[in-house]
Design a protein around this nucleic acid. Sequence first.
DNA 1: TTTTTGACTAAAAACGTTTTGCAGTCCGAA
DNA 2: TTCGGACTGCAAAACGTTTTTAGTCAAAAA
Lengths: 202, 202
Amino acid sequence: MGTKDEMIKAEVLAQAQKLFRHYGLTKTTMEDIAKAAGKGKSTLYYYYKSKEEIYKEVVMGEMNETFSFLKEAVEAAETAEDKLRAYSLTKFRVLQEKVNLYTVICGDIESNFQLMMELHKNYESQELQLVKAILDLGQERGEFPGIINANTDQLAFTMVCAGRGLQMGLVFNNNFVDLDSRIDLMSRILMYGLKGENPAQK
Amino acid sequence: MGTKDEMIKAEVLAQAQKLFRHYGLTKTTMEDIAKAAGKGKSTLYYYYKSKEEIYKEVVMGEMNETFSFLKEAVEAAETAEDKLRAYSLTKFRVLQEKVNLYTVICGDIESNFQLMMELHKNYESQELQLVKAILDLGQERGEFPGIINANTDQLAFTMVCAGRGLQMGLVFNNNFVDLDSRIDLMSRILMYGLKGENPAQK
DNA sequence: TTTTTGACTAAAAACGTTTTGCAGTCCGAA
DNA sequence: TTCGGACTGCAAAACGTTTTTAGTCAAAAA
């Protein structure tokens, strides 16, 4: 009965997600999840190997959602330029949404640093690939004469890191004012930079 | 006898700095500092109000040093473009050094988050001003037609945040390879972006 | 008078023990 | 096959005790 099985798993996950958002990893007990899902605690272990597995699944779901938004937006765009713009725009939009949801995560990160790092690393490498692909495309199509012969790996790393720093800044200062115009400005600068002529002029 | 007074204070600070670098804030005791400075513990309280004051002074000294390097490099440059380039180059150079010096910092930051934030905030606002000043100058001199009418406050914020994100990435991955070429590439992109023509072409 | 210090205190950290809360198991029921 | 409740073991909280350490003070030294 694969279908029913899947449905229960999904329900458990959905409830767990709700609870994790409110209370974080440690403060959410397996009993809480079981109750919310209308099941007994041990039933959860029929579907999932451990609490950590549930948590991982929830967080990865969240990340995958984010990433698929990103990917979708990127794929919808035609030129590398538009892709890059769509990437940054979507990224910050999604962040803005998620920030409101996950109030607790920060505490979670502190107390479970290892796990979060593991998950994050995986996610970041996906994003790195995405950005690198865009840059490579742009380079291939000659959209970015400014970075001819540049190491797109490094550039992608730089851009992703910078993006994260900016995200942190925004979250920390709760400084989401004028987000759109700011993103626009930033991507304009980035775009012109990528498109700029080769450094003949000193 | 202001001079002798100053000398002793400086000596205490120097010893404290050495110890903090090795052992961090909590693992360094006032007795350690006193012994290293060749004084009795209570003597320290004749010169400093508290351990925290000593620590603050040390960290602020470190930050001021960093900042004065930055400022010096920026002032030495002529054009806003060169200033900006000098800024990023120096910033990462200094970071690289400090990272080697301070082996403990991560643990310290975790256990004394509040204090570090306070100090960092102060420092960051200085840096924000510096960057903004460069941008304003560039705008004024017409070096940056790409950002005409742009909000340089926001742009400075963005750049400083992005820089910090990149720093984090570098430190975390211990990824200082090709630092120079990477900085060069990034600042080239940034420069062309700032200089780019106004967005007439879509 | 200015500097320095050893003796003191109060508060916090470290340590060892007990208790408890919860993840995860097992067995039996449906 | 699906589930729940009782059970186990472990890891973290709670608690009391001891040690360490930041900070004070009054008195000695310079």
